[in-house]
């Protein structure tokens, strides 16, 4: 049994856990950046930019996210190839969309046809991260937008009274104060992000869902590479437990962080903390 669980393919399964963690580690800050951009755009005094920010957040929240995952992977890929096509082969005369085909010149292909396997994998992973960041950026943007509005208006008025410009007010007064208000929403979002990672499978990355299906299944009903029948159920049970443990641990950690941050704050939770001691 121990020998079976350490075969080469199982090792790839364990590696793919690393892939998931890496995805989380990259996506979380990237989504936060997108969200910050979206929230700042939605507050902007320049009308088209404000519309852009609001549409971005409203549109992604109104439609099933899985549709966006499927959409962005193709759309981003084609977008990159189209942009490279415009730059690299300006004298290409054929239409890019020929009926049901999307044709760009060979130099514009991404990744290059002769690139080694790992480039393909890294590129796929990169597109996946970007997709996650765009979708979760909208949700993070919504949280941050709410948090920005929760900062007491008197603070901003005071800043204006001191003669700060809009930009200064934003960076020196609004942004430092909004995090306390944003944290509950963001920690909620983190939980959701964890639970969204299995969707990587749909984006064509060989993640844990892929390996669980691969390893648990039998090659065909009669002959099998593996010394067992259909074990996919148990592999998915293991995944289920993995995710449960992961969310539980994050919950505990985030609760601690929240307790830390509310310490001494003039909010209801901070007040409760003060009374308890």
């Amino acid at each position: 049994m121990a020998c079976y669980l350490t075969t080469g393919k199982h090792m790839s399964l364990y590696w793919s856990v690393g892939t998931v963690l890496l995805l989380l580690a990259i996506t979380a800050p990237a989504a936060l950046m997108f969200g910050f951009g979206g929230a700042a755009a939605a507050r902007s005094s320049f009308t088209p930019l404000r519309w852009f920010g609001k549409t971005y957040m409203a549109l992604i929240r109104g439609v099933p996210d899985i549709a966006f995952f499927l959409f962005f992977v193709i759309a981003l890929d084609q977008g990159f190839e189209w942009a490279r096509h415009q730059v690299l082969c300006p004298d290409w005369t054929d239409a890019i969309r020929q009926g049901n085909d999307f044709v760009v010149c060979a130099e514009a292909k991404l990744p290059q046809g002769n690139a080694p396997q790992w480039v393909h994998e890294v590129y796929g992973f990169f597109v996946a991260v970007l997709t996650f960041a765009i979708v979760f950026g909208a949700f993070a943007g919504n949280v941050l937008f709410g948090a920005m509005r929760a900062v007491p208006a008197a603070q901003l008025e005071t800043a204006a009274a001191y003669g700060m410009s809009k930009r200064q007010t934003f960076w020196r007064i609004l942004v430092p104060q909004m995090w306390v208000f944003a944290l509950p929403g963001l920690s909620n979002l983190w939980m959701v992000l964890i639970k969204a990672t299995p969707l990587l499978f749909l984006l064509g990355v060989e993640d844990i869902v892929y390996w669980a299906r691969e390893l648990g299944g039998t090659k065909n009903p009669r002959f099998t590479d593996y010394p067992h029948g259909d074990w996919r159920m148990w592999y998915f049970l293991a995944l289920l437990v993995f995710y449960l443990a992961f969310t539980k641990v994050s919950e505990v950690v985030l609760d601690r962080v929240m307790a830390r941050l509310t310490h001494g704050q003039a909010t209801a939770a901070g007040e409760a903390q003060r009374k308890a001691t």
């Binding site: 964890i194 639970k195 990672t197 969707l199 869902v209 995944l239 289920l240 449960l244 969310t247």
Partner: peptide, 11 residues
């Protein structure tokens, strides 16, 4: 609530 719906469907 703690596990992804995606995995629940598979399982």
């Amino acid at each position: 609530r703690g596990s992804p719906l995606f995995i629940q469907f598979f399982f």
